[in-house]
Design a protein around this nucleic acid. Sequence first.
DNA 1: TCTAGTTTCTGACACTATGTCAGAGTCACC
DNA 2: GGTGACTCTGACATAGTGTCAGAAACTAGA
Lengths: 222, 222
Amino acid sequence: MERSQQRRHEEKEQRREAIIDAAEQVLATSDFDSARMEEVAKVARVSRALVYLYFKNKQELDLAICVRALRALRQHFVDSAARHATGYAKVASLGHTYIQFAKDFPVYFAVLSRFESHPFDTLEPSSTELAVFEAGSAVHAVTVECLQIGMRDGSIRADLEQPLSAALSLWAFVHGLIQIAHNKQHFLEQVGIPPTQYTDYAIDLVMRGLRPVAGTRAPSDA
Amino acid sequence: MERSQQRRHEEKEQRREAIIDAAEQVLATSDFDSARMEEVAKVARVSRALVYLYFKNKQELDLAICVRALRALRQHFVDSAARHATGYAKVASLGHTYIQFAKDFPVYFAVLSRFESHPFDTLEPSSTELAVFEAGSAVHAVTVECLQIGMRDGSIRADLEQPLSAALSLWAFVHGLIQIAHNKQHFLEQVGIPPTQYTDYAIDLVMRGLRPVAGTRAPSDA
DNA sequence: TCTAGTTTCTGACACTATGTCAGAGTCACC
DNA sequence: GGTGACTCTGACATAGTGTCAGAAACTAGA
């Protein structure tokens, strides 16, 4: 019975994942508000009531996707950073990576966007909320590490002082940037700014704030 | 009847404003999703059906508040810019002003946040959407002007080239920043970063990207 | 193989909110 | 005081959420 209990547990976990899969699929073709739990249930080939057995409500399900998004993003960050030599280049690549990530996985970006724009008071966070928190911290840790590498190799000004503050600033910046670039694409084009050029321009602008004050030229990339 | 028609028109406009007032009031104590049209109607001392006569739906009502928010923000921007001498100082002040604005008028910031995070495709924009668009452009125009002043007075690097791109970049940055600072306050404190220090740090970081490449010190404020 | 117990799952329900509409109420003008 | 235009409302249809009693499926001991 030890054995079957274990299997039951695994099956339950699979069910959970399957429901999250379904939710992702549904969110790919409708936004959060118009997404219907009925639809999620249908895609997961399960009754709607069961979904509520696994997730307290829509938000909770959304948070579960959020965890996936953050873990995936972290992996992209790690890979991207590894492809560059200097800390400066690594950090810059993270910005571009997030932008590309948002383009490639719009559902994930939307989920993160929702998370960022809703208060996270969490006097007593649910286990899902804790998981989001942890996954988020893991993402920021990558940025912090790249910043520190840059400060050590001289490609980023050493008086940055608070790498975590810088990391969270950059996160906020790029997140806001993508939000505009994505949702106001039409507007940007109307005022004669191609979205891609816009994001490149913005990343360049903010990266200047990281350069050593002595050398005003961009540190060479790798 | 020319006269009474005029009066009718004005009364209608007042009703509309009164409903928006009510909506603002309701949103002050509940977020968008949990805000109930019934509640708005009750506060406006009107039947729910009437609200739907003035506004197609909740979103439309939200957009109407958005217009107010942007107009108010523009005024704050203008006032703030006027209190500073150099273009650089003006631009920096806009950042701090937006942050303060968000703190003072959380409902307005929430409304703007909602607007920024929903696609604005507008193949055929409603009149309210057009008004938002226009009010938004007016805000960005202030930033552009400050940037141009800075480029002329030498406090901002002259090779900025596209002041509108820069203005929209800054907008995106600061907006993202406030979102984090507001909604993740708890998180920031938990990792030992007071929100105010965080926003100051971030503004300083991004402002460095505007400084003339020759002079590495911050241009003096006014 | 039967059965009792546990876990997983569902149909049906209560509830709540949205958006609509026929028509009641109000007012200016004739 | 009748008429048309405009303002407003009660009541309804619709639709989605979250819950719960109990059905179904499975496990394991007798």
